[in-house]
Design a protein around this nucleic acid. Structure first.
Length: 807
DNA sequence: AGCACGCCGACT
DNA sequence: GTCGGCGTGCTC
């Protein structure tokens, strides 16, 4: 009797967000829950994940079921814990299980499926043949000559214009040509020749090699390490000829072995020196031990920039590795991995795997395999590292836990913070969050005892905190200075350069001018797709920083045809120009998304700056994060306000964090740092406390505001984005829903609906977008209501649980 | 998401 | 009368 399985199809589409039932053919009886399979779906072959196998098929009508076509895994890819995580994510974020499960496989699909075409065996009668067009006849003749033709080959032979597809379908419909599918695994395994010692090495054997010094040397070397790859041996100056000769003598065996790609393998690092913890670090470790013995295993490590949080992560990782469990280290961006990977490699060497979105599918696949088979114990990576196939998990570290980039901003819109916390629970692992500026939510939890708070106030080696000075840019204007650089900052740059020390200058906008406006009619040139102002870049192009669309700069205003088109606002390119004009002898390098296109470009720039090849590093917030450059004593923050004026309740929090993080770059060596902070909002509390580096006061003031306005951490947020081609329709549907919901929850004061308000990107690809913001103290009842109303499968409504911004 | 199906206007 | 445009609905 054939068994039956429930399968989720690997497609990121809400409308098919349900399991489909298939028969398991007898030859695939080994299949279990968590295996990946190929199934017929509609008239295609698709990849699917088995989520359930029925013990018997008595109560199910099997006549309408299709059969599983082929298998991808014989062992389940999804462990029960991976499945539990995916399931929780789908429930919590109200998206399809297929959508969350596919996060866990390397690449979007495990197999590549492509259609191939062949002629049908039966002949075409002459009178039918005559009815075919010339093109159709040509196509048929072509397929008589070649077997298993795919679309790519046809395209090459029949021109790039797609007309042949029409004729092809005609022939398929008449059953002259058949269409079938072939598939192969996405990831290709690579192999290398491996040399394995095949004899006891003793004096007798070595004696036979008396006149063969190279072979003798090779054998002695192999005796020490037993086996090695041919490439590794080549580095030891042992040639393939030598090895082949040894193989002839049967002293060694040559075997093919799979190589697991790892571009971080040959990273050169110094061995870790003697570990000595500071008093604060030791206290933190003791607190962790005590809490663990009381069964508390969630920690918030609140440590100022430069206090040595990384060392705590390492200490904890050492403990967990000693227990044989795996460790996950999350970092906000690939950019930050460089520094942290180095530190971990010093202690763990090749026990470290790195995962991020710039890895090739092949390398990711190999890395996943090393994790899956327990060949590595430390996994460092950005968001996507959450979905590595851990065997066990004893510790989840989240560095810079306040970072907004932990939130995935497209479907499935998960927040790594939530997922990491859930995973820690599922795997029974320790959760360790770290930040110099914790998110309000996390610090609030620490205050309430949900997390154990670990505080480190001192910088390592008693390095003093930098001196921060604010410059009111309104005063600068009054004194006739219309430049980007204030007089004080210019002075700081001069004196720092004179001392042969380095500077970091942050301006959180890339490009040259931030908007282009017609002086005559006031028209601002906007992105045709999303309506945001286009940014002028130096190479003479206009770019949308949201859609990456590039447009030429118009000579005349598109609206009133006047020639008075001017550029306003300043970005990093303009700052670079002003700096090099003001300080012609300074060596300046820029770091922003425009200069970091290639895979390791970012690290290269930082490496060169660190090596002293440049005096000034300028860039967007990228320059604010993580790296430790001892010779930097001066830091300039050009516009602390740009993040302050955003219409979002987290604007103050972000501004405070950005100021603190950037200022923290100054004075990491023995010299005291000096920071100039330019702002138009000098009296704002986020700026003031940022200047004083006083997180606690900022937290208290911000928390009072949050409580008053009923925002997180006092409630949870759900953002609903309503889309429609007709603006009024979008507003009406949103409003109707709002009234519906308010009626349903009329007796519950803790659930509020705000809006509808036009989204920040109010029109995208001809769709108007309006937001509703739901505030609730109970996510689950709102979740239930939304499902009941089928909001979760409505393709014109996007649900964002715990959104990172509200506009 | 694809892909078939089906209903309506343009062209041989 | 046929071709082909795109809106609608389905996928075990």
């Amino acid at each position: 009797m054939k068994k039956i399985a429930d399968i989720y199809i690997n497609i990121p589409v809400k409308s098919i967000a349900k399991p489909y039932t298939y028969l398991i053919p007898e030859q695939f009886d080994i299949l279990t829950v968590g295996c990946r399979v190929l199934v017929p779906f509609g008239n295609r072959i698709m990849e699917g994940f088995i989520i359930k196998i029925y013990p018997d098929n008595n109560s199910i009508d099997t006549t309408k079921l299709k059969e599983i076509k082929d298998i991808i895994d014989t062992q389940p890819w999804f462990t029960p814990n991976m499945y539990a995580t995916a399931k929780w994510m789908a429930d919590f974020y109200m998206c399809s299980l297929g959508e969350t499960m596919r996060l866990f496989i390397p690449g979007k699909n495990s197999v590549k499926i492509r259609p191939i075409f062949n002629i049908n065996d039966k002949e075409i009668p002459l009178e039918e043949w005559k009815k075919l067009s010339d093109k159709q006849q040509a196509l048929y003749k072509y397929m008589q000559a070649y077997k298993d033709v795919d679309l790519l080959t046809l395209r090459r032979s029949f021109g790039s214009n797609e007309n042949f597809i029409f004729d092809l379908e005609k022939l398929i419909n008449k059953n002259y040509i058949t269409k079938s599918y072939i598939y192969h695994k996405q990831a290709k395994k690579i192999y290398t020749d491996y040399i394995i010692l095949n004899t006891l090495v003793n004096d007798d054997i070595l004696a036979t090699l008396k006149r063969k010094p190279a072979q003798k040397k090779a054998l002695i070397y192999l005796n020490e390490i037993k086996e090695a790859s041919v490439t590794d041996l080549k580095q030891q100056h042992i040639s393939l000829t030598t090895l082949k000769a040894l193989a002839q003598l049967n002293y060694v065996k040559i075997e093919k072995k799979q190589v697991l790609r790892d571009s971080y393998k040959n990273m050169l690092v110094n061995k870790a020196q003697q570990r000595t913890l500071t008093e604060e670090q030791q206290t933190a470790m003791n607190t962790i031990e005590n809490s663990l013995s009381q069964g508390k295993n969630k920690f918030l490590l609140f440590g100022v920039t430069g206090s040595g949080k990384t060392q705590i992560y390492i200490e904890m990782a050492l403990k967990i590795r000693a227990l044989g469990k795996q460790v996950l280290i999350l970092v906000p961006e690939i950019v930050l991995t460089g520094q942290l990977v180095m530190s971990f490699k010093q202690y763990f060497n090749d026990d470290v795997a790195v995962i991020h979105s710039k890895l090739s599918v092949n390398e990711r696949n190999d890395t996943f395999w090393r994790i899956r088979t327990g060949q590595v114990g430390i996994v460092i990576g950005a968001r996507s590292a959450l979905f590595a196939p851990f065997l066990t998990l004893g510790l989840v570290v989240m560095d810079e836990e306040h970072e907004a980039s932990y939130k995935q901003d497209e479907s499935p819109r998960y927040h790594s913070h939530d997922v990491a916390e859930k995973m820690a629970q599922i795997y029974d692992a320790i959760l360790l969050l770290g930040s110099a500026t914790p998110s309000l939510e996390s610090f609030y939890k620490a205050q309430n005892g949900e997390y154990t708070l670990l505080t480190m106030k001192e910088r390592i080696d008693n390095i003093p905190m930098p001196f921060i000075e604010g410059v009111d840019m309104r005063e600068e204007l009054k004194h006739g200075n219309r430049k980007i650089l204030s007089r004080k900052l210019k002075e700081l740059i001069s004196t720092t350069l004179a001392k042969k020390q380095q500077l970091i200058i942050m301006l959180n906008r890339r490009g040259f001018s931030t908007f282009v406006m017609c002086r005559s009619c006031g028209y601002v040139i906007k992105c045709p797709q999303c309506g945001l102002p286009l940014v002028y870049h130096k190479q003479g192009k206009l770019q949308c920083h949201h859609c990456d669309i590039i447009e030429p700069v118009p000579d005349i205003c598109p609206k009133c045809s006047s020639r008075y088109i001017k550029f306003f606002g300043s970005g990093t390119e303009k700052l670079e120009e002003e700096l090099s004009q003001t300080f012609p002898n300074a060596r300046i390098i820029r770091l922003d998304r425009d200069t970091t296109g290639k895979k390791f470009a970012h690290q290269d720039i930082l490496k060169q700056f660190k090596a002293g090849l440049y005096d000034i590093l300028l860039g967007t917030q990228m320059v604010a994060k993580g790296h430790d450059i001892p010779n930097v004593t001066g830091v300039g923050i050009i516009s602390a306000d740009s993040s302050l004026n955003l219409p979002d309740f987290r604007a103050s929090e972000r501004t405070f964090a950005l100021i603190t993080q950037t200022a923290g770059r100054a004075g990491r060596g023995s010299q005291k740092g000096h920071v100039i902070l330019q702002t138009y909002n000098l009296e704002h509390y986020a700026v003031q406390y940022g200047m004083q580096q006083d997180y606690i006061s900022f937290y208290n003031e911000e928390l009072t505001l949050r409580k008053m306005l009923y925002y997180p951490p006092f409630c949870n947020l759900i953002k609903l984005i309503f889309q429609n081609e007709i603006e009024e329709q979008a507003i009406k549907i949103a409003n109707d829903f709002k009234m519906d919901m308010e009626k349903y929850f009329s007796d519950n004061d803790n659930i509020q609906v705000m809006g509808p308000a036009p989204a920040l990107i109010s029109k995208f690809k001809d769709m108007y977008r309006f937001n509703l913001l739901i505030k609730t103290n109970d996510l689950s009842i709102v979740n239930k209501f939304l499902r009941q109303k089928n909001i979760d499968i409505n393709k014109y409504i996007t649900i964002d649980i715990n959104p990172i911004n509200t506009n």
